[in-house]
Design a protein around this nucleic acid. Structure first.
Lengths: 172, 172
DNA sequence: GGGTGAGTTCAAGAAATATTGAACAGAATA
DNA sequence: TATTCTGTTCAATATTTCTTGAACTCACCC
């Protein structure tokens, strides 16, 4: 709802974490981006940092540069991986995992549709069926109105299902 | 002196509000729908009720059938009107306002894009400009990498701007 | 086995959002 | 003008969602 123009301000005692202005700007952009998508801020921070990082980053580097907790880092990376937005890469002789951002828009959009939108559409299908079973008998007053409106819901639903592949294709 | 017959009006519990199964189902669908869009539940409830109502409903009818507060009702209707999803209709000789749902998908999508998405895209434009101003000098190591990634952000942004009209058109 | 490094889990606390209701404002009646 | 009817505003409260950090698991090394 609302749009709090959050400007990511660098902590003043940030002597420690020190993100560059470029990094801060990119992270800020993604933090605001994921907001629109309904994802938590930490997801945007992590993705933003990886996006603008020339090298793969380890779990600890992410955590300490962003100054977020282990829990958020772990949870955030998990979700980003499930979205296909972040990938673990092999680094020779390293024990830890290293992560890089996936930057193919098609893949990002595909992951978001698969993980976040499609499940909702599916639950919508069930709800719609339930609604249809509650349509009043044709003899009831307004029966036609109800039938029309419920029918329109079905049309919207189908249209939305058709729209998703189009979006994916367009963003290729 | 006669005491007025004080009828204890038992207000509250479902005996009073009683939504039909059909209404409940439709409201449920919209409540879950607006969730995906990042709008509050009450918005979904109000729109759902109006959507499946054969007659325009007054402020008080909405409030009492949904059992939500005056504040939520007022605020919800305000937002729905700003989105173009609800319209006040004239009812002869009535003092109150009466409301109906707008059911043209194109209009709904257009309103959402205009009110919720475009402002974010605009703020993205500003943020992008700020980022570009922080690109390191070409002599810096990784300068090309940064330039590429920031360039890609610009491409994504433009593509998204192009996508919105396509979505609107498709959902006509 | 015992110790250490790396990451996950999840209950509790913090932060962000939504809802409520009482005070208010304006318009239509009386 | 006073009164009632309608709806709005907004500070306080409730609810939801995110983040934290301590306890835990698992794998590796000594």
């Amino acid at each position: 709802m609302e749009m709090p123009q959050t400007q990511l301000i660098l902590e003043s005692d940030a002597s420690e974490s020190s993100l560059t202005a470029l990094e801060t700007g990119v992270i800020d952009l993604f933090v605001n981006g994921v907001r629109v998508l309904g994802l938590p801020k930490s997801i945007g921070e992590i993705y933003g940092l990886l996006y603008i990082s020339p090298e793969p980053l380890s779990f600890d580097e992410i955590l300490s540069r962003l100054q977020i907790s282990k829990g958020s880092t772990s949870q955030g990376l998990k979700i980003l991986r499930s979205l296909g937005a972040v990938r673990a890469v092999y680094v020779a002789g390293a024990r830890r995992d290293y992560f890089v951002a996936e930057t193919e828009l098609k893949k990002l959009v595909g992951g978001f549709i698969r993980e976040e939108l499609s499940p909702h559409l599916d639950s919508g299908t069930e709800r719609l069926e339930s609604i249809q079973s509650h349509l009043p008998d044709a003899s009831e007053p307004d029966a036609q109105f109800f039938k029309d409106r419920v029918g329109k819901l079905g049309t919207w639903h189908k249209r939305t299902e058709l729209l998703l592949p189009i979006i994916r294709k367009f963003l290729t």
